[in-house]
Design a protein around this nucleic acid. Structure first.
Lengths: 222, 222
DNA sequence: CGCGGGCGTCGGGAAGCCGTCAAGAACGGC
DNA sequence: GCCGTTCTTGACGGCTTCCCGACGCCCGCG
């Protein structure tokens, strides 16, 4: 869920944006002035800031500077000031895009998508999972430390890690990793679970993360 | 030096932009139509593309798709089409910004700075990648030292280097370099990985950068 | 106490995968 | 048409991975 901080001092604009953004399943926070905006941004770390330049307390460009001092969050300026000089100042201060009022709401959405897409690529996924002494990244299929996993081990591990805390049935594990013809071969599971525990658990004899539920299946506990 | 590819079919616009950009110390390449643009982009890997939508051969949106198929280069659309629908289409196709003619040249520069600033770090990382005793620049396809790589070797190397630390599946490498029909020929991979290691690794017998993950694929570790 | 089912562990054998050498086939420049 | 580079294809040894059977343990049950 993308969280957006809307900064504007006109209540009707604030209201219209909040409704429209919420309808598109964005999570919206609002700030009526620059001070509130900076405070809210620091507290909630939004994924995007929609900023009006004409605020009662601070100048919009100063708000941009205030944000850029510590965060790279995308800033989309949305304002009535249409002079090129204003645009240049705001963009050079660190804004990512600049839209003048009145604006087409669909165009605004498209620009929001454009800037978030750009930033999304740059930020790496934080899909790191801690297991025992090791950190596992499912995206890159990498593990910290001197450990290597075989393809089958990855297959098993991935299913368990994607269902944290949940019980995964033997049947499900077997069909996903070995195919539906090997549903009976629970032996494979014991074999490879042992392997995973040996490689990942701190004390393989007393597993803390890969728990077996006798007769049913296995469970990954973070 | 930031290199910009300007795509427009009006000679006077092309000329004006070239002069103004050159005055700001940008390196400029120009393309009068979509086909030329795609070819030039593939050859020279510009740092930014300035794109007019009304081209004689292809539709501008198709040019964007063509570029986005293989590169994340920032695309700034610069066109006479001012309808919101056009803007939305272009932005959703992958453009980073959209400016309508007539435009203020200083505002254009500010927007160029804005999009390149956002991408800056990412592109520079691709400029100098250290592998063994060699430094590789993906943008210019050049290597330090007395080494030469064949086209296929570059293709393989580029995919791996663009995914540092990530595991790249054999399937993906084969389809990207050799095409969909050669997905089974894992032999090619072994052949060319050996070649890359021989040319780039300090000790080809014990590779430090091009790691093979048995049964899965290969991984480049910086 | 004996028994059986489910589980964890160990080790061997077979299959598949990987790296390497080598040579033929296609391609491009002259 | 010739030559050098690049790409494809084949063969082989070594190693990893997977499969499979054997055994011991724990626990509930008769």
């Amino acid at each position: 869920m993308t969280r957006i901080l809307v900064v504007d001092d006109e209540p009707q604009i604030l209201r219209a944006l909040r409704i429209n953004l919420a309808a598109r399943h964005y999570e919206v926070a609002v700030a009526p002035d620059g001070g509130t905006a900076l405070r809210l941004a620091a507290e909630s770390h939004p994924d995007l800031v929609l900023l009006d330049l004409g605020l009662p307390d601070l100048d919009g460009v100063d708000v941009i500077h205030g944000l850029r001092g510590w965060t790279g969050v995308p800033i989309l300026v949305l304002t009535g000031r249409f002079s090129s000089q204003d645009k240049i100042e705001a963009l050079d201060a660190g804004a990512d895009d600049y839209v003048t009022k009145p604006f087409d709401i669909e165009e605004l959405f498209a620009r929001i998508r454009a800037v978030t897409r750009r930033v999304g690529l740059h930020e790496e996924e934080l899909a790191r999972i801690q297991v025992g002494d090791h950190t596992i990244d499912l995206n890159t299929k990498s593990i910290s430390g001197e450990v290597r996993l075989t393809p089958t081990e990855w297959g098993l591990l991935e299913i368990l890690l994607r269902n944290p805390g949940k019980l995964v049935s033997q049947r499900h594990l077997l069909t996903e990793v070995w195919g539906r013809h090997h549903v009976k071969e629970t032996h494979y599971l014991r074999q490879y679970m042992a392997q995973l525990r040996r490689k990942l658990e701190r004390d393989p004899a007393r597993p803390a993360h890969f728990i077996t539920e006798a007769g049913m299946g296995y469970r990954f506990v973070p």
